[in-house]
């Protein structure tokens, strides 16, 4: 199997479409190692696929059969761990959650997510995302505790739960931060992931840390830099809808919500 390096701008054209039967696609994988000064190039591989083959499986096929040095982060293979986020045909998506057949093309291009430093090939550095997530104090803040023997559990109705439940499904895959137009230009921006998590705890009726969190996000690189482009919600694989969380959170800042 020949591995052909091509310039990133060169996009091979395809006239045929992927069918449900065993087919062969061209998988273009972005190869780079910035810390070693290696510029990005594309390596092309011919990969047999079936209608249920995911992009991650296609990449793993390449690792097993052609080039084991392709760097890719993955774990659960079922959209639960948030490890395999990457740009697939120009859009951020989870490789394990994207079937080759649904891309409607015989040429699949995979690149590392934008707005994250590249470690190597498809693996990116999540340091900033995790640090911004921690900055939002992602835990219940209150004086008392429900785990001491003399206390009772905190009451929460199903309606209370529904106010934040969907935002607690965030798997920290970073796709929202990769799609965000503000993240593209502002490296200090908290990002949709962090802001959505701030809302998740602010909306939790057990939490008493609302003022603390609102103070953190009321920053020149905080919530005011979001312009409601909605791209974060477009790419979220878990239905978290960070755009909604941010607008509802801003409602608290503007006094529309208590």
């Amino acid at each position: 199997m020949a591995v052909v390096a091509a310039k990133p701008s060169e996009e091979p054209k395809s006239n045929t479409k992927t069918t449900g039967q065993t087919d062969t696609i061209t998988l273009r994988i972005s190869r780079s190692n910035p810390s070693e000064g290696q510029e990005s190039t594309f390596a092309e591989f011919q990969v047999p696929v079936q209608k249920w083959t995911t992009v991650l499986e296609a990449i793993l096929y390449v690792k097993q059969n052609f080039d084991h040095s392709v760097a890719v982060r993955y774990s659960c293979r079922q959209a639960s761990c948030g490890s395999c986020g990457m740009k697939i045909n120009g859009r951020p998506a989870l490789a394990c959650y994207t079937k080759v057949s649904e891309l409607d093309s015989n040429v699949i291009t995979v690149e590392p997510m934008n707005n994250f430093p590249i470690i190597r090939d498809l693996a990116v550095d999540f340091k900033q995302l995790i640090s911004n997530h921690k900055k939002m104090k992602p835990f219940i803040i209150r004086e008392d505790s429900e785990v001491t023997p003399d206390s009772k559990e905190f009451i929460q109705t199903p309606q209370d739960l529904e106010k934040f439940l969907q935002f607690s499904y965030c798997i920290k895959c970073g796709l929202c931060n990769s799609a965000c137009p503000t993240m593209a230009t502002d490296e200090s921006f908290i990002g949709p992931q962090g802001l959505a998590q701030a809302y998740r705890y602010v909306a939790d009726n057990r939490d008493k840390g609302k003022d603390e969190r609102l103070k953190i996000i009321d920053d020149s690189h905080g919530i005011w830099r979001c312009h409601f482009a909605g791209s974060c919600s477009h790419v979220c694989p878990k239905g978290v809808d960070p755009a909604m969380a941010i607008q509802l959170l801003r409602g608290y800042m503007l006094g529309f919500r208590k």
Partner: peptide
């Protein structure tokens, strides 16, 4: 920006259409 017209939080169901 004030949270008006962006939908209500709820249980997300596949295929996860964003309410906002």
């Amino acid at each position: 920006h004030g949270g008006i017209g962006v939908g209500k939080p709820g249980q997300p169901e596949y295929p996860y259409k964003a309410a906002s």
